[in-house]
Structure formats: C-alpha cells, structure tokens
C-alpha cells in the first residue's frame, strides 16, 4: 500500500480561462488546504484511494443557498503519457477521475482535456465513495474496480476544494504534480 503526505499548492489564478478569475483572484497564492494524506491500495482490479485533510469548517449543506459551495475533492489520472496535470490535461491528452462533493452521496466521473473542459458523468456502478468528517478532518475513500488508465499509468493527482473559502472550479488546492500510485 502506498502512503504519502502530499504537499498542495494553489492552482494558479493566472492560468484560469477568461478575464475575470485571473485578475479577481490574483492574490490567491496560498492553498486553502496545505497538505493531504494519500493512501493508494491495489488488489488485482480493485483500487482503494483515500484522502484525508484538515478542515476546521466543513461545508456539506448548500442546497437552497446562493453563495455556498460544498467541500469537495477529486482524484485523477492521465489517459495518455504526457498529459499535463496542472491544466487538467490538454487537447488529445485527457485526464479522467473521480469527484466527490460533500453534498452528494455518489461520486461523479470526470474527464477533461484542458482547463474549463471538465465533463461530469455518473461514475461506474461499482465505483463508490465514502466520506466522513471527524475532529477537524475529512476522510474520503474512493473504491474503483477496473480503472484501466490508473492500471496503465500508475499515476494520480489530486485536487481539494474548501467550501468555506469559496473554492470552486479552478480555485482549488492541487498536488504539485503526478504522484506515483504504487
């Protein structure tokens, strides 16, 4: 089993698409989440990936409100060699993964070929997520069966959104590169 403390960085506002975010959030240089514990366990076709990070103000109920964003995290992998992690892939070099939101029970599948291109879809039926907040920490555990891209490339990257900091979209804390999954 792979176990690692992953230092996080803020996704650079200057790289965000459009003219607003890059200027309005130019002062966001420190990540809202500084580090996360990553565990990756592989048994045959089964993958268990767990993230744990400090969060003193968990936010999971946002329904019916206009200014709230839920805590969330994503684990993603390259589908081809050389897919850039910082831009969530590039044209012809997709990344794919799993997204958990604190206001939803099921994980979502995600796929992107560059910034602003992420597509969300229902995850495979036999892929799941369990999440719990306790004593100032979120612990989120993904179970994925038969993740071909992960098996092939054996690399992961992660992103965490802190709802209380109004993180969403490109406003997030991310790993500083691809991380060896085994």
């Amino acid at each position: 089993m792979k176990k690692e403390t992953v230092k996080l960085m803020t996704a650079p506002a200057g790289m965000q698409p459009g003219g607003y975010v890059m200027k309005a959030y130019a002062d966001r240089v420190n990540p809202a989440i500084e580090a996360a514990q990553l565990e990756v366990e592989n048994a045959g076709q089964r993958w268990r990936i767990q993230l744990r990070w400090a969060c003193d103000k968990p936010l999971s109920t946002v329904q019916g409100e206009t200014d709230l964003f839920p805590d969330a995290c994503a684990i993603f992998v390259p589908t081809t060699a050389g897919a850039p992690w910082i831009t969530m892939g590039d044209k012809g070099k997709a990344v794919e993964g799993l997204l958990w939101r604190a206001d939803q029970e099921k994980p979502m599948g995600i796929r992107a070929e560059g910034m602003g291109t992420m597509q969300r879809s229902a995850a495979q039926d036999d892929w799941s997520v369990k999440a719990a907040w306790s004593e100032g920490y979120w612990t989120v555990t993904f179970q994925a069966n038969g993740w071909a891209a992960l098996k092939q490339h054996q690399q992961v990257a992660l992103a965490i959104w802190r709802g209380s900091a109004q993180d969403r979209g490109g406003l997030k804390s991310v790993s500083q590169g691809w991380i060896a999954a085994v």
Partner: peptide, 10 residues
C-alpha cells in the same frame, strides 16, 4: 459581457 468573460467553461 462581464459574465461571459468570467466563465471558465465558456
């Protein structure tokens, strides 16, 4: 439009 310019997803 400022809204258009603000959307990262176009």
């Amino acid at each position: 439009p400022a809204c258009l310019d603000a959307c990262p997803r176009q």
